[in-house]
Computed example of a mutant assay.
Amino acid sequence: MKPMTRRTLATLSTAVALGVLLPACAPLVVGGAAVGTALVAVDRRTSGAQLDDQGIELRAANRLREQFGERANIAVTSYNRQVLLTGEAANANVKAEAERVVAGVDNVRSIVNEIGVVNSPSLGQRSNDTIITGQVKAGMVDAKDLSASAFKVVTTRGTVYLMGRVTQREANRATDIARNISGVTRVVRVFEIITEEELAKLASPVKAEEDAAKRNATGGNN
């Protein structure tokens, strides 16, 4: 590990990449992209999608708690209305039922069910998962060719889940960072793949806002 200085209901119409990788495996991604360097420093979801994701997480978590109580410890993470379920369930029936419950939540487009039929992790394991998440995020911040804000990172029992609207180049780079963190046993990619051209279009309004802010700061002389 390099030292850190800082820091399945449906397939979407746009390409969604779901890859399960051991640290030595080659990544699996669905969708095309060309190599490029454009980065977006802000959330790549629309404001509506961001609000929907917040609502999905809250409603799904409440329904799961009401349905299962102590029989399951399930975390809900939504990105661009695609839901990742992680955590632990008492048995396979609970795991399957949890997916059906979340499928009934408004605005959910697809579900990746990664709930484990295992005992809940110890406090030590949970703490280690938190550390791993922080190290992955720090690695993304340190990387000069990635926009860390484009990714969501979730770690459960040593497995790192990566979510976001990213290019294949970005997906591969982020995977490489995650799988080289100490304690990571595998990396699961839950990406919506976009092209470099789509990324450039996302970057255009951001650059325009930055240029306008600079002009305002200098009295409009630039």
Rank of each mutant, 00 (worst) to 15 (best):
V40E: 04
A89H: 02
N93A: 15
I56K: 03
S47M: 14
A72G: 05
Q82I: 13
E70L: 10
E97K: 15
E66Y: 06
G32M: 08
I74T: 04
Y79S: 10
V20Q: 09
N93Q: 14
Q82C: 12
A60G: 06
V30R: 12
L22W: 05
R44V: 07
G104E: 01
V29W: 01
A60Q: 07
T77F: 02
I56M: 04
N80P: 05
E70W: 06
T77G: 00
N107H: 15
L22C: 01
L64D: 03
L84K: 02
A90F: 04
R63K: 10
A26M: 08
L12P: 01
A60Y: 08
L21P: 01
A60C: 09
D52Q: 09
A49Y: 04
D106K: 05
V40K: 03
V105D: 01
N91V: 03
Q67K: 10
C25K: 09
A10H: 11
R45M: 10
S78Y: 03
A75P: 00
E70S: 14
G19R: 05
L18M: 07
D106G: 03
D52W: 08
P23F: 01
L9G: 07
L64H: 03
R100N: 12
A17T: 11
L28R: 11
A61W: 05
K95G: 01
V35S: 07
S13N: 07
A49W: 02
L85V: 04
V76C: 02
N73Q: 10
G55W: 11
R100A: 12
A33E: 14
A34C: 05
K95S: 10
A10V: 15
R71G: 02
A38D: 14
A90D: 13
L58S: 14
S47Y: 12
A98G: 07
V35H: 11
T8D: 08
A96F: 02
L21M: 10
V40Q: 04
N73D: 13
A41G: 15
S47A: 14
V76Q: 00
F68T: 06
T8V: 11
G36A: 15
R65T: 09
V29S: 01
